Computed example of a mutant assay.
Amino acid sequence: MAKYMLIMRPSDETFAAMMQRPFEEMLETVGRFNDELIRAGVLLAAEGLDPEVSVVVDYSSEPPLVTDGPYGETKELFGGYYVLDVASLEEAVEWAKRMPPFPGAKTEIRRVTEIDEFPQDNEWVVKERAWREQTGQL
């Protein structure tokens, strides 16, 4: 099994369509999909992100510049995510295809790297592994 992150990327069209629908209806639609993921045993995490409460830290200057966020253009927004534990990228794609459709939205799928993929003799990897074991993440 591997972890894949499904990153929800809305558009202006997506936001307009969402504002047309009653909030309870959206909750039910997304809730049904979440329930499918839970029943299938593949859901590890799922969160929506608040579009209003955020900042951007820009490291292109010293010290880093902090500005209100997220970004100015909708196409750069990251609206929420799912983390799934599935057998393959193809399975992650199949789940993404089943997500509730919102006009203009896109979903980016990225494999989540595991600590075992890094050099196990590196002191920082050793420290992180110990922390993960201590907190029940491994």
Rank of each mutant, 00 (worst) to 15 (best):
P101M: 11
V112L: 11
L6W: 05
K75L: 13
E28S: 11
I109W: 01
G136M: 11
A2N: 00
G79V: 02
T135L: 14
V125N: 07
E47R: 14
E13Q: 03
E13S: 04
D50H: 02
D68T: 07
E114V: 05
G31Y: 05
I7Y: 09
D85G: 12
P22G: 06
F33N: 07
G80R: 04
A130C: 12
E28L: 15
L6T: 03
V42R: 01
P22R: 00
V112C: 15
Q20P: 00
D58S: 08
K106S: 11
K75P: 11
P10I: 02
E47M: 13
P70G: 10
V125F: 15
G80I: 07
E94S: 14
I109C: 12
R9M: 06
S61Y: 12
P101H: 14
L65S: 14
D35S: 11
L65P: 01
F118D: 10
F102P: 01
M26H: 02
M26W: 00
F102G: 10
G104P: 04
R111N: 08
E25L: 05
G48Q: 10
V125T: 15
R132T: 09
G31I: 04
G80C: 06
E13H: 06
D58W: 13
L6C: 04
V86P: 00
L44F: 04
M18L: 03
A40V: 13
K97Y: 05
E52M: 13
G72D: 05
M5E: 03
K97L: 09
E128N: 15
E114I: 09
A87I: 01
R98C: 11
V55I: 04
V55T: 15
V86S: 00
V112W: 07
S54V: 03
F102C: 06
K106V: 07
R39Q: 09
E36C: 13
Q137D: 10
G80K: 07
R39F: 09
S88I: 02
F23C: 10
N34S: 03
A16C: 10
A105D: 12
E108H: 05
S61T: 05
F15G: 02
P10A: 07
E117W: 07
V83A: 08
G80S: 07
L37K: 02
L44G: 09
E128S: 14
R98M: 06
V30M: 00
L43G: 08
T107D: 05
P119T: 15
K127C: 08
M99W: 10
A87V: 09
S88H: 14
M1G: 03
G79L: 03
V125A: 07
Q137G: 08
V86G: 00
R129P: 08
V55M: 14
L84W: 01
V66D: 13
V66P: 12
Y82G: 03
Q134T: 15
G136A: 08
R32D: 07
D68V: 09
E94V: 05
R9G: 00
L43N: 11
A40N: 13
P100T: 05
D116N: 14
T74L: 02
A16N: 03
L138E: 12
E25M: 11
